[in-house]
Design a binder for these strands. Structure first.
Lengths: 357, 357
DNA sequence: CCTTAGCACTCTCCGCGGGTGAGTGCTAAA
DNA sequence: TTTAGCACTCACCCGCGGAGAGTGCTAAGG
């Protein structure tokens, strides 16, 4: 709708006014009038002058009017510009930082809990929906495998990754396998395959099985069977969500239909994850503002997301979901810091580890 | 507000009309007029006669008018009566039954999954919110304990109950414990404590520790320490929920405020569980209709719940949450059947079990 | 005595119209 | 280039009145 060509340069004054409009709108959620900008009086200009500038900004595609004789509202382009250059990136305050550090430091017991706490922090400190996408298990690097008998022919397979994620899965075996043999099998797998991703391991096992089908002994057959069942087909990425009820306080969700669509979208985890992972190639924080993506565009909602991982290994994504008029100045540093913090926590607490003998 | 004393006997005709009003209201969600009852013509009466009866029913506290010159709406008392005697309990159709059986039979891999599938079934087949409260781990009977090393001083404690529930918890130890010793400890615990509830075990261990503090050897000390950390303070009951977005389709949730209160209530899991467990002493299906309980009363919502368990051991509760005008004829048998079915699945698949040597 | 037709009455809902106020765009003067 | 002034537009609010649905009551009919 807005032709980027048509956007001329913005004079410093234009920028100042645009910024003021955006900031005001972010706080009020209501169309901003020229008069209110004038009254705030940053520039000592009259409403009429500001009206002129605002008309120009509208022409350039940065502002829009819901209807004639209403104030103006920022467009996507305006938000993008705001984030790029207009906004002064507020750092997290020391106390916010401390709060995060303490919360995350107190209990790094287990990577899953860590991620739960992170999504809660995201939501709590932004009053929006916090999201954390857990790593795909198939891509994680194996540290140990253990098998615990659960019932006659049921075995719990516990996979621990080098990054501290623990995944359990109950598998059914063809016959009952004695406890000692389970121990031998898990020792064998851990010794031979630690350091590889689950996917690699599974592939290698499948190949082995195909090649030596005839001459494998009983124990190796069992091993392959167990490993295949235990390591294959990990469920897709899981997403942790927190703060959906805070979202309902936003004025943009004052009618039911939007709320419904929103919750339906949330229920479709697969698409949510896809959106979160979209363009997560780089390092820093990305912002999707009412993108072509169904979820964000129809509702005028945005997503601020950052990747996390250990070393240069990208494990997952975390972010905040809320109305396009969210407080980017606060939210971007928050997402940024939590992304780093989570990465650090993961690499610190779960480096080193038990060697098996 | 309604004095039960004032309710006289209902003639068969009164009952017939009351039933018709309730059934109609359940389907339409709108006040029922005398004319519409007459037109349906079950009794061949005119609207005027029916008006008389309806006036009586209102006097007796079974019907209410939102305002003069509106149709009538059933009261709580009416729903209670409806469920007790007016309603003809529709059995589940063979195909519904088959659908449940097949869904539940295909994958009883693990008790947690079983419960997830159950809550989904509840929601899917009723178009309401389905709920399942998982058993409190502290009350379950121990079958085996295993310890799996995860990092230097972190151990994953895997508790398997006789009913097939598996609970994991990462615990931090004071010092690194060699793998063989972990095996010895888990063998010791399983051999000595299988068949008792986690709470009993914890108490006994604490007593032991207090008594013999001085003269315990290193290994016993470690055992007690690990067991105490692994078995204590299991988190409260967990509740699985499914179908919240279906709920938003209900006409009673057409304004935001109710939706908000509802989601806030849902977020407060503890109270939700409390409500579900309330008066779950008996065996059958219970129905709470807009009870004094905050959640249901303010919103005109009801809860249909039933316990499940193994043998005579009551493990948890499952149910459906929806508008008071829900289709009890269908929903009560559904909850009933799923309660039984879940109980059966739990006792069947996880009876017997591995003995440890 | 029960049932029903008829009628007046009540109350919600909806559309209409006018008044109000916020906000704009334009023009002309400083 | 800025600003004051003014006409114009449009959403919002409010009150009004008619339409329609539904009731309660009464009186006639089986």
């Amino acid at each position: 709708m807005n032709d980027p060509e048509s956007r001329g340069k913005l004079s410093p004054r234009d920028q100042e006014i645009l910024r003021d409009v955006i900031v005001t709108y972010i706080l009020s959620a209501e169309p901003v009038s020229s008069r209110s900008v004038a009254k705030r009086g940053r520039l000592g200009l009259s409403a009429a002058s500001i009206r002129n500038v605002m008309a120009d900004l509208e022409e350039m595609g940065y502002l829009a009017q819901p209807h004639t004789s209403a104030g103006r509202v920022p467009t996507r382009a305006a938000y993008h510009l705001f984030i790029q250059s207009l906004m002064e990136e507020r750092q997290l305050t020391p106390s916010e930082r401390r709060y995060i550090d303490e919360t995350l430091h107190g209990r790094p017991a287990d990577a899953d809990e860590l991620m739960g706490v992170t999504s809660h922090l995201l939501s709590e400190m932004s009053n929006q929906v916090g999201l954390v996408v857990a790593p795909v298990m198939g891509e994680t690097v194996l540290k140990t495998v253990d098998f615990v008998p659960v019932a006659d022919r049921k075995v719990l397979c516990v996979v621990v990754s080098t990054t501290g994620f623990i995944d359990n899965k109950v598998i059914e075996t063809d016959e009952e396998i004695p406890r000692e043999e389970l121990v031998r099998i898990s020792n064998y797998l851990t010794d031979n395959f630690a350091g590889q991703t689950l996917r690699q391991i599974r592939d290698r096992l499948l190949r082995t099985m195909a090649e030596e089908r005839a001459q494998v002994d009983r124990m190796l057959a069992r091993t392959i069977d167990l490993a295949r069942k235990g390591l294959e087909e990990r469920p897709g990425q899981e997403v942790l969500m927190d703060g959906t009820s805070a979202l309902l306080a936003q004025p943009e969700l004052s009618d039911i239909h939007r709320v419904r669509r929103m919750f339906e979208a949330f229920a479709d985890k697969a698409r949510l994850v896809q959106m979160l992972n979209q363009c997560m190639s780089g390092d820093g924080v990305r912002v999707l503002i009412g993108d072509d993506n169904a979820l964000t565009s129809e509702l005028d909602f945005s997503l601020v997301a950052a990747p996390y991982g250990v070393g240069d290994r990208h494990l997952g994504t975390l972010g905040i979901f809320g109305p396009s008029r969210m407080e980017y100045q606060k939210i971007i540093p928050l997402v940024h810091y939590l992304g780093e913090r989570l990465s650090r926590a993961l690499s610190e607490s779960f480096s080193g580890g038990p060697d098996r003998r």
